[in-house]
């Protein structure tokens, strides 16, 4: 039984057909690599899963529910998280607030005033999550704009993991990182898999894809042209699918 099921997704921007009938299934605890050339439709496909883009046609099923017409907030509440390439962090807000952005826990202040953001709880849970990921951040009270790329990447991951997601989509999580930081991201993906979280990893770095993923899906010109088991393929074959040279 699959966790995520995409059926015949179509999406156009004006005259440009970006997705032309995408079918894909992802099971719980499965790590799949989504690869393809620039303009193949990877980012668009991911945004139709998170709900940022409504689809023109087709269906998105998640956890035995049709989520096609739900907005990003509703899908996030059901366990679909995405870590964007640009990280989607609010640079002037502090680390803890970024982790809880859009889902701030509230309480009643002095038992009376409603909707009081529970900053103490945000801080303590954010600290716990940072500790659990085993990363060093000088302070959770710093604005994220003052942190390094690797540290910001970690905060984006921490935000995705804080609310027990079932599916995490990562868009180029290793592209801007130093070698040591790349390994820690790959370790985190393995940790997620072992906890039963499904991961879709979008990456141009095939080395990372082969290390982290069990299955590799190639997108070309808006449709899935190959769905490969890592053990039965190799890098040359994947590259030939990506560039459209596979016979």
């Amino acid at each position: 039984m699959s966790l995520l099921k995409l059926t015949d997704l179509h999406k156009s921007f004006g005259a440009v057909k970006v997705l032309r009938g995408v079918n894909l299934e992802v099971a719980a605890g499965e790590v799949i690599g989504l690869v393809g050339d620039n303009g193949a439709g990877k980012s668009t496909l991911m945004k139709t899963i998170t709900g940022v883009y409504p689809v023109d046609d087709g269906m998105v099923r998640f956890d035995d529910e049709d989520v096609t017409h739900l907005n990003p907030g509703e899908r996030r509440a059901r366990g679909i998280e995405m870590i964007y390439q640009d990280l989607a962090l609010a640079g002037q807000q502090d680390v803890a607030n970024n982790i809880f952005l859009g889902r701030e826990p509230t309480k009643r202040l002095w038992g009376i005033l409603p909707s009081f953001v529970d900053k103490a709880r945000i801080d303590s849970e954010a600290q716990k999550m940072i500790d659990r990921l085993g990363v060093r951040i000088p302070s959770i009270h710093l604005p994220v704009g003052m942190l390094s790329g690797g540290q910001q990447q970690t905060i984006a991951i921490a935000r995705a993991l804080t609310f027990q997601p079932k599916l995490v989509i990562m868009d180029e999580p290793t592209a801007a990182l130093a070698v040591r930081e790349v390994q820690s991201v790959l370790d985190l993906i393995e940790q997620m898999r072992s906890e039963g979280i499904a991961v879709i990893l979008i990456s141009h770095r095939l080395n990372d894809v082969f290390e982290a993923c069990g299955r590799i899906v190639v997108l070309r010109q808006g449709s899935v042209i190959a769905d490969l088991n890592k053990k039965e393929t190799n890098m040359n074959e994947v590259v030939s699918y990506i560039v459209g040279a596979h016979g």
Binding site: A77, G102, R103, T106, F116, V117, R159
Partner: peptide
């Protein structure tokens, strides 16, 4: 109280800080 201590205020600042991030987090 609203700007500094409620979700409405936090979302206001997030929207001004990075609109794409605000949208991505479901605001």
């Amino acid at each position: 109280y609203i700007l500094a201590h409620t979700p409405f205020g936090a979302h206001t600042l997030a929207l001004g800080d990075n609109e794409a991030a605000a949208r991505a987090t479901g605001i």
